[in-house]
Simulated assay, not measured.
Amino acid sequence: MGKGVAVVTGAGSGVGRAAALALLNDGWSVGLAGRRSDVLEETASMATAGTPLVVPTDVTMPEEVENLFATVTETFGRLDTLFNNAGGGAPSTNFGEVTYDTWLRVVEVNLNGMFLCANAAYRTMRDQSPQGGRIINNGSLSAHAPRPGSAPYTTTKHAITGLTKCIALDGRAHNIVCAQIDIGNAATPMTARMAGGVPQPNGTVVSEPTMDAANVGDTILLMANMDLSANMQSVMVMSSQMPFLGRG
């Protein structure tokens, strides 16, 4: 069985793929979740160790999330770690022009979808024997400071911080720990859309440096391999040259 059993959502690209590969190559069994089976299969084919299990899943659909965790536990016997990663944003839009449809679309994935996955993982970890596990929620640097024109995304990421703390607190009774990783400018398809520059607080548009997403995978692996008696409650991993520390 290897070192443990994990589920990674959004495992078909970006930091989800990097985290899934880090876990697999360390000998974990990993349920790969995402909407597109082809890119999930591609992630699975890139692993040099471990046991991948492709489970196409739309995290905004409760029945598909339930199927994901049922399939993983039926296949591997338990669940040790969830990297609750699936999410997305919207084009930079001044708050006055944000439509309700855009708001709902971002909230549905970034907040509702993350709730559904965390809740299903929590119940799985609570009810298994031996009890317990680790949930790692993907926040963002936007959980700390927004970019201009990012109200829906930033609001959901601030909400994830509250969700993480509540799960960590309630989980103590069941040996479930919950942490948050806040990632800045990993080189992924999402940041590739920022190649033309990113709006800054002073009204300028500036091209920002990125880091290899493998750094995020290494961090997730470090967190996942910790004993449940310890938790890296909050971690920030970002490109060392990005302007985040000087915002404002």
Rank of each mutant, 00 (worst) to 15 (best):
S239A: 15
M114T: 14
S29N: 15
A44D: 09
P62T: 10
Q128K: 14
N175S: 10
S239K: 07
L21A: 12
W28H: 14
N112I: 14
G89L: 01
S142R: 03
T124C: 12
I136N: 02
P62A: 09
N175T: 08
D170N: 09
D58V: 03
T210D: 01
N175G: 03
L24P: 11
G133P: 12
S229I: 05
F83P: 04
L163M: 15
G248Q: 02
A70V: 05
V107Q: 14
G139L: 06
L141E: 11
M223T: 07
G197K: 05
M125T: 09
P91W: 00
T219H: 00
V237F: 10
G197T: 12
L104G: 01
W28A: 14
M194N: 15
A70M: 03
N67D: 14
A20C: 13
S129Y: 03
G89Y: 00
E208S: 00
M232N: 12
E64T: 12
E66G: 11
S37G: 07
P146E: 06
P201M: 07
A121G: 08
A159R: 06
G132A: 06
M211E: 06
T155P: 12
G16H: 08
C178R: 01
N84F: 01
G87T: 00
P62Y: 09
Q128P: 10
I160R: 04
M232R: 04
N85S: 04
K165Y: 08
G162K: 07
A18R: 11
V206T: 13
D127R: 09
G132T: 08
G12W: 05
D127C: 04
R78Y: 06
D227S: 13
P148A: 07
V237C: 13
S29Y: 06
V198K: 04
T161P: 00
Y122Q: 02
D212N: 11
N25D: 15
P199A: 08
G248R: 01
A70W: 00
F95W: 12
N67Q: 12
H174Y: 15
T81C: 13
A33W: 12
H144V: 11
A195N: 13
T210S: 03
L53E: 06
G139V: 08
L222D: 06
P146Y: 02
V39Y: 00
N67H: 14
L68P: 07
M190C: 05
S92K: 01
P146A: 14
T48S: 14
L111I: 01
H158I: 11
G149F: 11
D170I: 09
T43W: 00
G96P: 09
P91M: 01
A168Y: 10
T191C: 12
E42T: 11
G88I: 02
A47E: 09
